[in-house]
Simulated assay, not measured.
Amino acid sequence: MSLRIVPVSFHEACSFVDEWHRHHRAPQGHKFSIGAANEADELVGVAIIGRPVARPLDDRLTLEVTRMATNGTPNACSLLYGAAWRAAKALGYRRLVTYLQAEESGVSLRAVQWKIVAHLPPRRGWSTGCRPRTARGTDNVARTRWEARIAT
């Protein structure tokens, strides 16, 4: 099956994430979104790229793949991660990061030469006194941060 990168609006990408993502809802915003389509022009995956959620990484030269969702089509994730990095570089960014739950293999990221840069312990939750948040089932999960970066 042949796949290709297609433009998608933020609204389209969010709708796809809400339908297909295993454990997250769509994010609040983005810098850009991209899609993967099959030979029949059906959308089979999306990547939403935005500012890093972790404030220390938000150096104006780094972006984050905040959501990646596919309908299970083989190679769609790798295609989208690779395209997201090419687009970020073309826009002048020097690093692109994303997070996987610790039990996820990362095979799609390895396929496009992303590297593990951090193993993060589980968080008790995202809610704090000054920013109350509703738990969404992703608390207490260890994560791995992956990145693609321009060599310095």
Rank of each mutant, 00 (worst) to 15 (best):
75 N>W: 15
77 C>Q: 15
33 S>L: 00
36 A>C: 10
77 C>N: 15
40 A>D: 12
42 E>M: 14
60 R>K: 15
56 P>W: 05
39 E>S: 14
37 A>P: 02
80 L>Y: 10
81 Y>I: 13
72 G>C: 00
35 G>R: 08
65 V>F: 00
46 V>F: 00
73 T>P: 01
58 D>G: 14
70 T>Q: 09
72 G>P: 13
69 A>P: 05
36 A>L: 05
31 K>S: 06
47 A>F: 05
59 D>Y: 09
39 E>P: 04
39 E>Q: 15
38 N>I: 11
51 R>W: 10
60 R>I: 03
70 T>R: 10
35 G>M: 07
50 G>A: 11
39 E>K: 15
78 S>P: 12
31 K>P: 02
65 V>C: 11
76 A>D: 06
49 I>E: 02
44 V>R: 09
75 N>F: 13
34 I>S: 07
61 L>F: 15
54 A>M: 14
67 R>G: 00
57 L>K: 10
74 P>Q: 07
40 A>Y: 10
77 C>I: 02
66 T>S: 07
57 L>H: 08
66 T>C: 11
39 E>H: 14
78 S>T: 05
79 L>C: 06
33 S>N: 07
64 E>F: 01
57 L>R: 08
31 K>E: 08
44 V>P: 01
31 K>T: 13
34 I>P: 03
77 C>P: 13
62 T>I: 04
66 T>Y: 00
74 P>E: 04
64 E>C: 05
31 K>F: 11
66 T>D: 09
80 L>M: 05
54 A>W: 11
44 V>H: 08
46 V>Y: 02
56 P>F: 15
54 A>D: 14
45 G>E: 00
40 A>M: 08
69 A>G: 04
38 N>T: 00
39 E>V: 06
32 F>A: 01
42 E>P: 02
72 G>L: 09
75 N>H: 13
74 P>G: 04
66 T>Q: 10
54 A>R: 15
34 I>R: 11
80 L>H: 08
66 T>A: 03
76 A>V: 01
58 D>L: 06
51 R>G: 03
31 K>H: 13
62 T>Y: 04
56 P>Y: 03
38 N>W: 09
36 A>I: 12
50 G>V: 07
58 D>Y: 14
34 I>G: 00
64 E>D: 13
47 A>N: 04
70 T>M: 07
39 E>T: 13
